[in-house]
Simulated scan of single mutants.
Amino acid sequence: MLFRSLRISPSVALFLLFCAFLGWQLSHGPIAGQPIDPPGPGAASPRQTPRIAIVTLITQEKSYIHMSLRNKDHYARRHGYDLVVDYEAHSQRGTTWWKYNMMERLIKTDKYDWMWWIDFDTLITNTDIKIADIIDETLANVTNAHEIDILTSHDCNGLNTGSFVVRSRESAAKYLRYTYDLHAEAKQRGEQYSEQDAMKKLQEIDPLVAKHTVQVPQWKINAFPPEIACFDESKKVWEHGTFVIHFAGAWAHLKDDDPTGLLMRKYEKEIVWGDWEDIY
C-alpha cells in the first residue's frame, strides 16, 4: 500500500533500499575483499622471496657424506630453498667442471632466480643466515646491481670456486660456456686449466665478464678454519657464528688419513642449527 500511495514501483523501491544499504556500508568501512588504500604509482611493492637452489656434487665414498648432506638439507628446508645434488659427473674436462654443467642445466629450467654452488667439503655453520640476504647486501653496494651475474670469493691464491653464486639467466650461462673455450685453447697449448683457473682467466681477459662479476669477502660465503690459513686480503678466519666453513685442501695442511673428515667432525659441533621443531 505504501508503494501505491507514493506511486513508486516495487523495483524502484528495491533499488532505493539497495542504495541506502550501500551508503551505510561505505560509511562504516570498505567492502570486504576490496583494498583499503590501493598503492600509488610510486609505492614500493612487497619484497618477493627469491627462488634459490643450493647446488653440490659428490661422486665418491667419504666419511662425511651424511654429515654434509644433512647439514645442507636442513638449511634448505629452513629457508625454503631447493637442494640439488648430483652423484655422477660426466664432463670430459674433469669432475670439477661438472658444477658448470649443473648450473647451465638449472638455468634452462627457469625455476630459480639464483643458484648457490657449494663444495661438498663444507658445512653451513650458521643456518640463521640466509644466502638471499647476502646476495641483497652485496648488490646494494654496487652501482650496476642489475648487471651482476656472478658473486665469487678469493683465498690466498686468488679466486676460489668452492662457494659462489650465479644468477639464473642466459648471460650467466654464456660466461660459464666461455670457460670451456678457454679450457680448449689451453689444452691445445699443452696446458691444463681447472674450472677455477678458467673462470679466473676469463675475468682477467674479458672486461664484460669482470663487469658482471662481484667479489664477496671470503669470510661471508667461503670462510676457512685456522687449520687452513689461506685467507683473502681481509685475513679473517672462521669463527663461531660465521656462515660457512670450507675445508679446501685439508690434505695439504693436516697429517691424517682422513683430514677433511677430521675437520668436518670437529666443526660440526659449532653449527647453529635453529629449532628443528620449526623446520620438520
Rank of each mutant, 00 (worst) to 15 (best):
M103P: 01
A186I: 12
N144L: 07
E185G: 05
K174N: 09
Y175Q: 10
A140N: 11
S153H: 07
A132M: 03
A140D: 10
T122M: 09
Y178D: 13
F164H: 12
I148T: 09
N126T: 04
N144G: 06
E195Y: 00
E185R: 10
E170L: 13
D121C: 01
E147Y: 03
L176E: 05
K111N: 09
A145Y: 07
Q188S: 15
H183G: 13
Q192S: 03
I148F: 03
I118P: 01
I118F: 03
D128Q: 14
E147L: 10
A140Y: 00
A173I: 01
N141Y: 07
L139V: 03
E137T: 03
N126Y: 11
I107R: 06
L182F: 11
V166Q: 06
D133K: 07
I150M: 14
E195F: 05
S153R: 02
D136G: 05
I134L: 14
Y178V: 06
E137C: 06
S168I: 12
Y100M: 10
S171N: 15
G158V: 04
S168W: 09
I148P: 08
H183Y: 15
K130R: 15
D119V: 03
N101H: 13
D155C: 12
I118Y: 01
Y193F: 15
D113T: 06
G162D: 08
Y175R: 11
T96H: 14
L159P: 07
K99M: 08
T138N: 00
R167L: 07
W97V: 04
H154P: 02
D113Y: 08
W114L: 08
R169K: 08
D133A: 06
I135W: 02
R167T: 08
N141S: 12
D133F: 03
Y100F: 12
H154E: 14
V142N: 09
T96G: 09
K111R: 14
I131N: 02
A172W: 03
K111Q: 12
V165W: 00
E195W: 01
Q192T: 07
K111F: 09
T138C: 06
I129N: 02
T125L: 05
F120V: 01
N141E: 11
M115V: 04
E170I: 09
K130C: 07
G162W: 05
E104I: 15
A132L: 01
R189A: 13
S163D: 11
I134Y: 06
S171I: 10
K111S: 13
M115G: 02
D110Y: 09
R169T: 00
F120T: 01
E185P: 04
W114V: 03
K187A: 14
W97Y: 11
A172K: 01
D181R: 11
T122P: 01
A184I: 14
G162S: 09
D149Q: 12
W114M: 00
I148Y: 04
Y180F: 15
D113C: 02
Y112E: 02
M115K: 00
T122C: 11
G158K: 10
F164G: 10
A184F: 15
V166N: 05
H146T: 10
E191I: 08
D119M: 04
T125H: 02
T161F: 00
R189M: 10
K108F: 02
Y180T: 05
N141A: 12
T96Y: 15
C156M: 10
